[in-house]
Design a protein around this nucleic acid. Structure first.
Length: 305
DNA sequence: AAGACGAAAGTGGTTGA
DNA sequence: TCAACAACTTTCGTCTT
């Protein structure tokens, strides 16, 4: 992924690239992808500028000159009803100008939405594939993303973080959970950022996401540890039981799944160490021990490791 | 020597005034 | 906006196998 000196679009491979010196951008004439050129530091980072994105967090240091708010409209048809020399314009002309402005605005909003979608859907596809997610997940995620765009929730946010957030939400809804860590790794966006976008979308679009059942992680972890079906079943049973006892709430689902697997593996003589389990589950041994202790006490397990 | 255990202090996010 | 809080991590000393 290179920004500088690109000769073709990384997305659609078109060689028709347009340079916009004023903004310091290089963009693809084919799909509208913007390959950021010449922007301060931090290597492989794409970013879409469109007319909407006025306020952007200062990434580092001094304010950036590249983004001039609303360039197209303001510079071409300004708000003062004067001609070039500063003379007044007739009311008739004024009305015409007003309509022009109105349409200009509508059109540029429409196109910026399209561009946004093109970029976002490509990104969605990339991330979803690298996470090995099925087609229907992509579809649902794309749908949710469209809703987010329509509701104008993308403002001031990286497209990529919204895409990641949408994927995260859909995975949970569909019961194919991916941890924030996994998605962060696949998308190259920080966990924190994704979480923020996720929460925002969730409340703004009133999407209800069920809390993750730890047993959904069991098959994944188990296969990473090469544990058999018996062990998995036992682990799921343990989780079900502790769910009933209400001692899962507030606990991280991965930690619970890990502890259940740890116990189950020992039960069936296929013992894995705490460290092994901890590594595949993405938690620490301490967490496993804590969950393990809770399960053991509350379920009255008498088995020693 | 490796694994398990648990105490204590630190971290980042949520919540409620 | 700030402080309290819970879950989890890091680190470390000790015990067990």
């Amino acid at each position: 992924m290179s920004g500088m000196g690109a000769t073709k679009c990384p997305e659609c491979s078109s060689k028709r690239l347009i340079r916009d010196y004023e903004k310091g951008e290089l963009l693809c004439a084919q799909c509208g992808l913007i390959i950021v050129e010449n922007i301060h530091d931090s290597g492989p980072e794409w970013r879409a500028f469109d007319a909407e994105q006025k306020e952007k967090r200062a990434h580092s240091g001094a304010p950036i000159r590249y983004m001039r708010p609303n360039k197209g409209l303001v510079t071409e048809i300004d708000q003062y009803n004067r001609d070039i020399r500063g003379g007044k314009i007739s009311p008739k002309k004024q009305a015409q100008l007003y309509r022009m402005r109105k349409w200009h605005k509508r059109v540029s909003i429409a196109t910026s939405m399209e561009r946004n979608l093109v970029i976002a859907l490509a990104e969605l596809d990339r991330v979803a594939s690298s996470l090995g997610l099925p087609e229907n997940i992509k579809e649902s995620a794309a749908l949710l993303y469209r809703r987010a765009v329509k509701a104008e929730l993308i403002r001031g946010r990286l497209i990529e973080s919204v895409v990641a957030a949408v994927i995260y939400a859909i995975c949970r809804i569909q019961g194919i959970p991916r941890t924030l860590d996994e998605i962060a790794k696949a998308s190259g966006i920080e966990k924190k950022e994704i979480g923020r976008a996720y929460r925002f979308i969730k409340t703004e679009l009133e999407v209800s996401v069920p809390l993750t059942d730890p047993s959904q992680y069991v098959p994944k972890f188990a296969s990473a540890l090469r544990l058999g079906g018996q062990v998995q079943e036992e682990a799921v049973k343990l989780i079900k039981k502790s769910l009933k006892k209400g001692l899962i709430s507030g606990r991280g689902p991965t930690g619970v799944a890990a502890a259940a697997l740890y116990i189950a593996s020992a039960l069936f003589g296929e013992k894995r160490t705490q460290k092994e389990v901890a590594d595949v589950a993405g938690v620490t041994e301490v967490t496993i021990r804590n969950r393990y202790r809770e399960l053991k006490k509350e379920l009255g397990l008498k088995i020693n490791l």
